[in-house]
Design a binder for these strands. Structure first.
Lengths: 225, 225
DNA sequence: ATCCCTTTGTGAACCGATGCACAAAGTAGG
DNA sequence: CCTACTTTGTGCATCGGTTCACAAAGGGAT
């Protein structure tokens, strides 16, 4: 390290990474509306965060703003996209073509920028061969072969809970290291594999917790003692 | 407050609340398999967390374990359910009956314990009147009336992004204070309203970020200096 | 060129969450 | 009753993330 400044420290905080997509979406909206330049204040508002946090987040990618002016929308879109790895197009496979799998395949924002659904799998022979969102559903037996052939690097698990771990083991064995899991189970994977979990019932339960507090409020105090 | 101990401090950390549903699921599985008692070590493994964290989390609800023995599964299920507000049955409404809305309505784990879908709404006259998961789809015009009549307290937004804020304003005006938002927009709501957001494309983007790092690995180092 | 205004980038204090490590509290067995 | 063993509950150090507040850096006007 020669340069005194060390902008791209190669270590972006996890919390920051989780917000970058938010900024990116807000910026895309602005670009479409023809806005060329934006201040941290305005962008923060659009993304629903505090402006100091936004600036610190962006500072982790480098110094891409101009003091007294703000950030160039186009340029920032490019920088964030690059950082997130969206300048390439990722091949995603969906395993499990139930209601949720279908919804995901058809979900526009899913395929949006940087991703495309490259394959869909199911175990049910009645479903295999169907065309969903312009794509043929393959039998789960072909999992490994198709993943390799089409260069799939991200797998979305939308199987029933009971099948999730087995499918997971297979895709991991096939070399996949990024999994988005919708099945309500805790997957066990090697440390080198990234699993992100989306769990609808957990979100509901968290809402119920707060709702209960609001409803009961300070009055409740029924069985507290 | 007479008792010297103050177990249920009325202030459970957010991070703990987010994990309680995880413990609850693991405990349900154990109860079904006839396990009567579990140690923090085993429960933590089943839930995919560290045992010290689990114990600290549970200690926020009170002292429900027995030293040298562990936790009684049934009893702990009850305590966590009560804390999360799952001893009552929450009426949930789904707005937007596209692919995702349908998937949610049919999703088993969604309706599981403590929740039931009480109403579904859409703006499209072709969809209104359809029966999905045994429930009639109502027109969005009836939103306020139906919400009040059926005592809906949690609303799931599965509308297109463009419609989300307007629908949100209406459900808030109708008195709803808990919203689960699947639309890719930042909703603006009064501070008293709880919004949780589930965003599929954000999750994918986070995976892409890490995948890119792995792929490039320590070799990449192209434009770093 | 100088002054004033705007906005970034960041040092430092603060806050909540995590994980270690151990005393306290219980069981079991002789 | 006393000793050996197990497992909880928690004090404490640590860490990552958030927020404040301000110096540094740029633009524009005179």
């Amino acid at each position: 390290m020669k340069s005194p400044s060390h902008p791209r420290d190669r270590g972006i905080p996890e919390a920051t990474v989780a917000r970058l997509p938010l900024y990116l979406r807000a910026l895309h909206g602005m670009a479409e509306r023809g806005i060329a330049t934006v201040s941290s204040e305005d962008l923060a508002t659009a993304a629903g965060v505090n402006s100091a946090k936004l600036r610190k987040d962006l500072s982790h990618l480098g110094s891409y703003g101009t003091r007294g002016v703000g950030y160039d929308v186009e340029y920032l879109v490019y920088q964030i996209s690059r950082e997130l790895g969206l300048t390439q197009d990722w091949a995603v496979a969906i395993v499990g073509v139930g209601n949720l799998g279908r919804a995901l395949a058809n979900y526009g924002g899913f395929v949006s920028r940087g991703f495309h659904v490259a394959a869909m799998f199911d175990a049910d022979p009645d479903v295999v061969g169907d065309t969903i969102a312009g794509l043929n559903v393959e039998h789960i037996d072909a999992l490994e072969a198709v993943i390799k052939r089409r260069g799939v690097s991200i797998v979305v698990l939308a199987t029933p809970a009971a099948a999730a771990q087995e499918v997971c083991d297979r895709v991991v064995a096939a070399g996949v290291t990024s999994i988005l899991n919708f099945a309500p189970v805790v997957l066990s994977v090697p440390g080198s594999v990234d699993v992100r979990k989306v769990d609808l019932s957990i979100e509901l339960q968290i809402l119920a917790f707060h709702e209960q507090r609001k409803a009961g409020g300070p009055l409740m105090a029924v069985d507290t003692q």
